[in-house]
């Protein structure tokens, strides 16, 4: 079974973030890493391919500056190859344009299953995977908390407000996985070494025949949000719990 995993390389969430002057889009010019959210999709894809008795896991990604270090992390986990769409015209691309680019890249490999995270950790738009499914004319099941393959069918427990639904879909299909569904493996030393020589194909939007056009949304301003008034911060001297009780009493919660 061949699986494509959509992955995103993002600015390290632990590092200070800023908006670019002029465009007010997130500054992604620094080093990019594999989005933590995507490690679950990569792991899920590797496990499903193994359970199906073989097949390849291919990564598909879009990045503005030819960045590949995040892709190498996922390759080190065990993915076979990667396709990176990198193009100056894609800088600041919206979710729909991103989906058009990724869908075009995915359709080249005709996978049985496309896996993505429910949303990225930097932009967190959360619509791109379903947009990809619609562009490819495929069914989709989002917010998967467990995934199994049974012949030509994918079976998913899908998160709902009140619990979960058991949902099935014929393959090929697009699924999105929530964090914590599987435990991502740490790349082994052997995996890290092997990743260095795994193929990463770099394409432009034009190679894929996708016209990027001008963005149809714009940021008009960035303002400071109203700050909360400073509270009382105290070091626990054994009275911390009592202070909380007193505060809850003042609020008439207890």
């Amino acid at each position: 079974m061949n699986v494509v995993v959509c992955v995103k390389q993002i600015p390290d969430p632990a590092a200070p973030q800023s908006l670019e002057a002029g465009t007010n889009t997130l500054d992604r010019s620094g080093k990019l890493i594999l989005d933590d959210s995507d490690a679950y999709g990569v792991e899920m894809a590797l496990q499903l391919a193994e359970q199906a008795g073989g097949g390849e896991v291919t990564l598909v990604s879009m990045a503005p500056n030819g960045e590949t270090s995040g892709l190498r992390t996922a390759l080190a986990m065990g993915a076979a190859s990667a396709v990176l769409v990198s193009d100056d015209s894609l800088k600041g691309a919206d979710a729909l344009t991103t989906a058009k680019v990724l869908a075009a890249a995915i359709s080249k490999s005709q996978p049985d299953l496309v896996v993505a995270a429910t949303e990225s950790s930097d932009g967190y738009t959360g619509t791109t995977p379903v947009q990809i499914a619609e562009l490819l004319g495929l069914p989709s099941i989002t917010f998967a908390k467990s995934v199994a393959i049974d012949g030509n069918t994918v079976k998913v427990d899908r998160q709902t407000e009140s619990g979960y639904d058991e949902v099935t879909s014929p393959l090929p299909a697009v699924i999105t996985v929530t964090a914590g569904v599987v435990e991502p493996r740490y790349p082994s030393f052997k995996g890290i070494m092997a990743a260095k020589s795994k193929p990463v194909e770099t394409l432009t939007a034009a190679d894929l025949g996708v016209s990027t056009g001008s963005p149809n949304q714009e940021i008009t301003s960035v303002d400071d949000a109203e700050a909360r008034a400073a509270g009382e911060i105290v070091v626990d001297e054994g009275d911390g719990a009592q202070r909380i009780v007193t505060f809850l009493e003042q609020l008439k919660v207890v």
Partner: peptide
């Protein structure tokens, strides 16, 4: 809601603003 927004955006070729 997000499934509807994503599919609608492609079907009508319209951009979507989220969050």
């Amino acid at each position: 809601g997000r499934d509807i927004a994503g599919r609608l955006s492609v079907k009508a070729d319209l951009p979507v603003l989220t969050n």
